[in-house]
Design a protein around this nucleic acid. Sequence first.
DNA 1: TATAGGGCTTCCAGTCACTGGAAGCTCAAG
DNA 2: CTTGAGCTTCCAGTGACTGGAAGCCCTATA
Lengths: 133, 133
Amino acid sequence: MNIGEVAERSGIPPKTIRYYEDIGLVRPQRSGNGYRAFRETDLHKLAFLGRARALGFSIEDCRNLLSLYEDETRESAQVKAIAEEHLSAIDDKIAQLQEMRETLSHLVEACRGDHRPDCPILKDLSGDLKNIR
Amino acid sequence: MNIGEVAERSGIPPKTIRYYEDIGLVRPQRSGNGYRAFRETDLHKLAFLGRARALGFSIEDCRNLLSLYEDETRESAQVKAIAEEHLSAIDDKIAQLQEMRETLSHLVEACRGDHRPDCPILKDLSGDLKNIR
DNA sequence: TATAGGGCTTCCAGTCACTGGAAGCTCAAG
DNA sequence: CTTGAGCTTCCAGTGACTGGAAGCCCTATA
């Protein structure tokens, strides 16, 4: 398979696939003309990467997950540890965003949004704490 | 004020303050010895930036918010528009993270996490859909 | 007065995970 | 034989910093 077909079938853009090769996540062979020649296992790996990335795993996590995937002697505890750590990072991020959301939505509600310059959002950002919060 | 004191009082690291000068967010004067000389208004601006960044506004948003802040003829509608757009971006991000969280937490629960290699997380990533989901 | 230290300066490089673009080779169709 | 799509490599840019090196400036102490 050439890169275009693999991109199509894995849902990962060619540029990204080349990048993944650069950083050693996949190692496709080469045809005589210099084109990358992907096997089914490469496609499989890329699809794996696509799903792991969609779950928000970092590239380094993906690298580790892939190597665990290929290691018959892995312990599922190793996989679970990576996943749990990532899960808790996600939870942290959600909490942080919800805190922003909370503050910001109050400010937005308090702002009339008309032609006048008076604005509680700017007031809050400027450090004036006499605000709806 | 030198950069150290401003950093202290604004809560923004010196490196970041220099970066903000680089990209034109603040324009401190200079002392005879080449040191940056910050006025109270610079400090105020940096604190404004710190709070806006803490609410997740991009640097470009911050630039616009600052210039609205300094514009006596602004309309609060302009500020509100920026804030609302940002708020909806935050909502999108939260939704996306919660979807990840949903999938991932089911997978983590389903994984025994012991010494055996069998792992529903890897199974899911490998594209096997016969899974708890 | 020499020196030690801490603070300040600039500049360059690295982060993360791509993404865009340019220049040029290969291949299949007409 | 040309056209156009697909492939190659390499370089640069994204966002918002952050780390580090090399070197100047200032103050305090021995």
